[in-house]
Design a binder for these strands. Structure first.
Lengths: 221, 221, 221, 221
DNA sequence: AATGAATGAGCTTTCATTCAT
DNA sequence: GATGAATGAAAGCTCATTCAT
């Protein structure tokens, strides 16, 4: 999935895709995301994007109406990329709410979803969301969808602990887990080298196990 | 502490600060931090900073040598502001490692340290650290000092659980707590309105209690 | 040839040049040379150049990458202008080395090559060459090519005086003539009004005649 | 004489001269000349000058009224430096006009007068003279005084060749010699390494000998 | 639909000059 | 006299956007 990576050689093998508007849009969005990941959103200029995409200058305004709208489209695309992968991984866990939660944790901390490229892009869009409404919209999507999925699962588990439908326990578990995952992304961003996915997963599970001791085994790292 | 806030009134009454280099430098740093908090680091220009500070254009290069060095100085100052306050609050907790840890949690999530201004600035400097070495240096300072303080406290507690000097438990607790606090700051940044400090503290303590049930009481929110 | 002169009329009638990069580059180079000739290289700013060329601010960086590179391109162009004219005039003298030398002298001191514009530009680039490598390269070209042409001619003549292939005589004659012409340009620069081309030519020829009395007749002014 | 050179250490040994207005003015002029010689007149800023002189910022305006006036004073001083040395050397040649002329040539091409520092400064002031009247005044002084000295000498010699008081011969000889020396300075400026003072003197003398064969022996290099 | 030369507002930076101390 | 912090006009440069082709 993350195979687009930082490739500057926009030469041979990519040409067949040309002369197709949708293909150009996709190429621009990918070039935008790659550029943001590589040099940061502040230094991501129209020139750098079109250079990486191997397309002409006017393309951005022709297809998106401007740089800001391209950024918004890239943010939206990035969110969808994330959820396509997450859904794919979580749908394979159908035996119960614990499995869904575990699947979310493992997916969110997997190489496919949490890597240098995605954490940098994520951070960039979070910052931009404060001053760019078009980005804000899609940037908050991650929390919203993830929150719903997790909340549903935690509510099912909480009921087995005698909690009511809208118990604080399920709400706090959802909140706590999301915050923990959020923090893990920031930590990965800060120092990818020293980051251990195994330790991360074990710590997150320990947190959940503290709330629901009957359902999550204390993993021993 | 956070009382500098967004003051645009560069009117008469503040002239005593003139002809004092240190005062000018401080004013520029404050204006820089306020501007970043308000409109983001990307839109923080020299013009906006000097306008807010009520000082002249050349000042920045006279005292700091350039915009980037002013940003670095602002990042350093911001980090020191954070630690001055944190140290002040933590030093009052001297009865044991649990108190230190609790004090750190409550301080880090307090209005004085975690607010809209500081979370936005924090986020901005994290992003800038990737491409600005001068900022990177001071931006990572927070983690380093906090990590040491917490690790020491957790090691003391872990020993009472029969753990060795350099146990994984103490390390994981430190890592987990920092990640959780990091995530809280991100969460606050994303949606300050819906954020509850009380819930945040209770969730963090629940995580710690899961690791050290004898020392941290499961608080009931 | 030197007809570009100081034209400040960037009015309507010259629009055909638009949308043609080469034409724009040429216009910028000409405007640069004219500006240097008029107000000196120190006062030659981007604003003055684009104003004279009737083009936009970004043009210089778009086509040359910066002011310094434009200056280097202008120096190169100026050198080529000089040699195109010199070659044209010298090639008509094919009957012998004396004719070549005389042609060089008369060409170099002619209105077409040595005038207020060219002497000022020449002086400016000489000075800039000390601190701008891009200019140094092309600024020294004049001496190199001229030196070779003259040295060849003088060697032929020197052989008729029984001198060896690499005689000091030919070398000194070349050096002396170049220095004399160099000095004439400086003198013209200093006071164009009092300068007499006829006296200049006669003096230079007298110098050559002193070295090769059989080949150059002592002209009487 | 040229011992001021490029010294950046404005420390100890120079202090006694302080608190003396004339001393400060001299220090500023020297720093100006050294800076021009080292980095060119375009890059010679007030900051660089006062830094090299080890004096305070306001000094220049206090003593000279502005940067331009300091440059004019430096140009004047430089011209006087040149003539003090030239006069000193020429006054020792009292036996006849030939000796005066030879002395001028040897002095003008000597290490003391023609060196990297002086040729660079000379070139800079020549260029600046076109746009700075205060400099123009003193920059042209060299030619004026030198011209008079040489013209007088050549007139005496010309009379022995049966020429009238205001003969063209004396005028041309003066002009030619000055131009030749001017050219030598330019040549030295362009490439000091390849320059040979001996060859230069011999070539200049050859030129004079061509005009006055009875008085100047054809030197053999 | 696609291109890329052209534009100019606005950016960071430089610098001679001023003036309170 | 002497200082150096302060000023702001003007410098070189960047870049999203436009539009003739």
């Amino acid at each position: 999935m993350k195979t687009s990576g930082a490739n500057l050689d926009n030469s041979a093998a990519k040409r067949p895709a040309r002369r197709n508007p949708e293909s150009s849009k996709r190429a621009l969005i990918m070039a935008t995301l790659d550029t943001i990941a590589e040099i940061g959103i502040t230094d991501t200029t129209v020139s750098k994007i079109i250079q990486r995409a191997g397309l002409s200058r006017g393309m951005i305004h022709l297809h998106f109406g401007g740089k800001n709208q391209l950024l918004a489209a890239a943010a939206k695309s990035f969110g969808q990329e994330y959820f396509d992968e997450l859904d794919h991984r979580v749908q394979q866990a159908t035996s119960g709410p614990e499995d869904v939660i575990t699947a979310v944790i493992q997916a969110d901390l997997s190489e496919a979803l949490m890597n240098e490229r995605s954490t940098r892009i994520w951070h960039a869009f979070r910052g931009a969301a404060n001053s760019n409404d078009g980005i804000a919209l899609y940037s908050s999507t991650r929390d919203k969808r993830l929150r719903d999925t997790l909340h549903s699962a935690f509510k099912k588990i909480a009921q087995e602990y005698g909690e009511a439908e809208n118990s604080a326990l399920a709400r706090d578990a959802t909140f706590g887990l999301l915050v923990l995952l959020e923090g893990m992304w920031v930590d990965y961003l800060t120092n990818a080298n020293a980051f251990s996915r195994e330790v991360a997963v074990s710590i997150v599970l320990r947190f959940i196990a503290g709330l629901f001791p009957n359902h999550f085994q204390q993993s021993q790292s």
